[in-house]
Structure formats: C-alpha cells, structure tokens
Nucleic acid binder design. Structure first.
Lengths: 116, 116
DNA sequence: CTGATATGCAACCAAAGGTTGCAGGAGGAT
DNA sequence: ATCCTCCTGCAACCTTTGGTTGCATATCAG
C-alpha cells in the first residue's frame, strides 16, 4: 500500500458524474423513478436539448438505460452501475482521507518531539 | 429529510476535484508534501503550463496554497479545505446510496407481495 | 385530417483543458 | 559583472464540451 496512485478510477464513470447538471439529473431520476428529456428539463435550468445530450453521456457510461414508449423515450437509472460510481467516490475520498490522517499523525509526532 | 435535493455541494470545490488531472495533482502533492508546476509536470502526462493553470484553479478553490521560494513557487495542499472536499464526496455518495437502498427495499417488498 | 407534443439533427457560441512559443527573473559558475 | 541555466508568466491558438436556437419528423388526441 501507501504510495500507490489512487486512480483505480474508471475515468468515464467519474467524468459522467463530474458534471453538476448530470448529478442533478441522476438525483431527479432516482427520486421520480424515471423521466424523459422533456420532463427532466422542466426541473433543470437548461434546455431540453442540453438534457438530451447529457442523457446520451450517461447512457454511454452505462449509468442510465432508455426504454422507448410511444412517442417518448423514458430513462431510468442503472442501479448497479450507479452503485459502482458511488463506490469510486468513496474510494477516492477514503484514499485522501487516509493521507490526511497520516499527515496529521506526523505533525503531532513532531509536536511531541519538539516539546521534549 | 428524504426527497430534498442533495446539492448542499459547493460547486466550485466539486468542479475543482472533478478534473482527473487535478485529482492526480492533489495525490502527488499529498504524497510528496509539496511541489511546483515544474516538478508536478514531470509526473503527469501534460505540459508545465497546463499544470500551472490547474494550480491556479486549485488555488482559487482554496485547495492549495503557494509559497514563493527564490525562483520557484512551491504549492502544498490546504488540508482543512481538502477535508471539506472529501466530506462532500462522501455526502453525495451517501445520498445516492440511501436512495438506492430505498429502491432496493421497495423492490423486495413488491417481490414479497407478489409471492403471497 | 389537424393540432399539439416529444424526439432528433445541425449550426453555432463560449468556456475549459491543452499546446507551442517567447520574454523575463533568480541562481550558480567563471 | 557576465554568462548560462532553470523556473515562472504571458499570449496565441486548437479542440472538446456544455449550452443555445432553429427546424424537421414522428406520435398521440380530438
């Protein structure tokens, strides 16, 4: 362990959830169960077309799946894939956390040394 | 709680750590303690100038601090601010996690209902 | 059939990540 | 002081990406 770089991270997945609009879209899809480009755009500060592009990105990243239904195209979250994404967030977070802890311990050790 | 949108997230902070190059830079700074645009660029697949721009972004987001030392400018991680960023990662992660759990519980409940 | 609504495609724009090229400041050796 | 080296800073430029407007097309409801 220790000095290994923490990028076990799938960069496509991360960059998919890196965008604030896409994060809110995932939120909305989770809350409402499903949605289309049109319905999502009603709750977002961007146009339907922008939402459609984001849905394309999320789809290619595997985070959502589309189901054509008549004249509309319903999207819903792929739960397994989102779970993977959450795991990656946690992984990066805990890697940094560990390093911060280590630095704090070292700093405290130096403090003690100097007080002796 | 429950259906509230999870964007308590400081968007500047998040977008600062959203870039893969900047994440690796933070990693390197944590591992090596400090670094300059030049030293960091040696361990990254981008030019010194690109690194310098990223350092500017991280600086403005408060994630790193600069200390001029002769002809070079050493940067180091602001631990408190990075800790905040880690907290936000965890926050978004756990919000999604909670919703996924809820969906799973509901799905199981439906399963049981149908089996009765 | 007609009107309303949802999607899809194309052109266009601005911001962001990246590059090359060059000028300038700070050390070190002569 | 001078020369050489190394690190930084600025400017121009390219490409990708998030966003927009405009228009064409498909489907549902009356």
């Amino acid at each position: 362990m220790s000095t290994a770089a923490a990028e076990t991270v799938d960069d496509d997945l991360w960059s998919a959830i890196g965008d604030p609009t896409r994060r809110r879209m995932l939120d909305l899809l989770l809350i409402e169960g499903a949605g289309t480009a049109t319905t999502l755009s009603r709750d977002l500060p961007v146009t339907r077309q922008a939402v459609a592009k984001h849905l394309g990105v999320l789809d290619r990243a595997g985070l959502v799946r589309a189901t054509p239904a008549g004249r509309e195209k319903r999207y819903q979250v792929d739960e397994a894939q989102l779970a993977r994404a959450v795991a990656q967030l946690a992984s990066v977070g805990s890697a940094w956390d560990a390093r911060l802890q280590r630095i704090k311990r070292i700093a405290e050790a130096i403090q003690r040394t100097q007080q002796d």
